[in-house]
């Protein structure tokens, strides 16, 4: 039971992590809370749905399509709603992202209807029993995709030249500029990567629950934001681990307490951690400029 819940929690949490990494990346380079990030997550799920139902694409192709589609959405958001707005008025970009949230949600409702829709069963489900733990193909697929993306993300940020430039920009944009880093390019690149991760997370959540809705973004946005705080602002590893912690906390609550309290319990854990350690579990890496 315990191990089973742990596995379920890690699976759920790994999708949270993907969303939270995006939050924390964008917060890192722009010091901006990107409200519309949850909507990008939602669009990822709908892009994959359209591709697999409308165009009869397979799972891998649909997911890749969703990834590219949401990366483009991220690009557009940065170009239309972030870059033209003066950052000196720090509330203005925040309000702009709230505006984008509402626009994307309304557009999705118009296009796809406001009712939850079924997400196609894309993986043939087979159950495996590993001692006391039961795990099915779907769970394995979800877990391996999100963990692979996290490992790739970690390698990208810690080992590549572009990743270093991204961290440099996040730590101090002026210093990065003085080293010849084209900061605007880094910002747009960050938006695209963050959005693509959220898009894939949307597809994974659709697969896990078999149902998606234009309002699923708001729920995830709250969680992603909470995890960013939990892991420490701008801390990528913190976002990864924080997502898994929140996912595990939720499934333990469902398993041992009551399922109706899962969000209350998860956010309760978050509040407790923030009271004890306000910079987050793994330390805040706030932009210094």
């Amino acid at each position: 039971m315990f191990l089973q819940q742990l596995i379920n929690g890690i699976m759920l949490g790994s999708t949270y992590s993907l969303v939270a990494i995006g939050y924390t990346l964008i917060f890192g380079v722009l010091n901006l809370l990107h409200f519309a990030h949850g909507e990008v997550f939602m669009l990822g799920a709908f892009f994959a749905l359209q591709l697999s139902l409308g165009l009869k694409w397979g799972l891998a192709a649909s997911m890749l399509g969703a990834l590219i589609g949401t990366a483009l959405v991220g690009f557009l958001i940065e170009r239309v709603a972030i870059r033209p707005i003066k950052r000196e008025y720090f509330i203005a970009p925040l309000v702009a992202t709230i505006g984008v949230t509402i626009i994307l949600q309304e557009v999705a409702t118009k296009l796809f209807g406001s009712a939850p829709v079924g997400f196609p069963q894309t993986v043939g489900i087979e159950n495996f029993q590993l001692g006391p733990i039961g795990i099915n193909t779907l769970q394995i697929v979800i877990l391996s995709i999100s963990l692979t993306l996290m490992i790739l993300m970690h390698l990208f940020v810690s080992k590549t030249k572009m990743g270093r430039a991204m961290r440099a920009t996040a730590e101090n944009a002026t210093t990065a500029r003085l080293l010849g880093v084209k900061v605007n390019g880094i910002i747009i690149q960050t938006f695209m990567i963050a959005s693509a991760l959220a898009g894939v997370a949307g597809v994974l959540v659709g697969m896990a629950y078999n149902t998606i809705s234009p309002y699923m973004g708001a729920h995830m946005a709250g969680k992603g934001f909470a995890i960013m705080l939990l892991g420490g602002l701008g801390n990528i590893r913190g976002a990864m681990l924080g997502g898994i912690i929140l996912g595990v906390a939720e499934t333990f609550c469902v398993g041992y307490l009551a399922s109706s309290y899962r969000d209350a319990f998860a956010y309760g854990v978050m509040v407790l951690i923030l009271i004890l350690k306000p910079s987050g579990l793994f330390g805040s890496l706030i932009h210094e400029d």
């Binding site: 030249k161 270093r164 430039a165 961290r167 440099a168 730590e171 101090n172 002026t174 210093t175 500029r177 003085l178 080293l179 010849g180 880093v181 890496l285």
Partner: peptide
């Protein structure tokens, strides 16, 4: 900077969260 004029700013503006090697590699960005 790309034209070849490099400023080492006051206050030792190094990238504190990066290693020594990473800082130097950023110099060669």
């Amino acid at each position: 900077v790309r034209k070849g004029m490099v400023l080492v700013p006051e206050g030792r503006a190094i990238l504190r969260r990066m290693t020594v090697l990473e800082n130097l590699l950023m110099g060669a960005y």
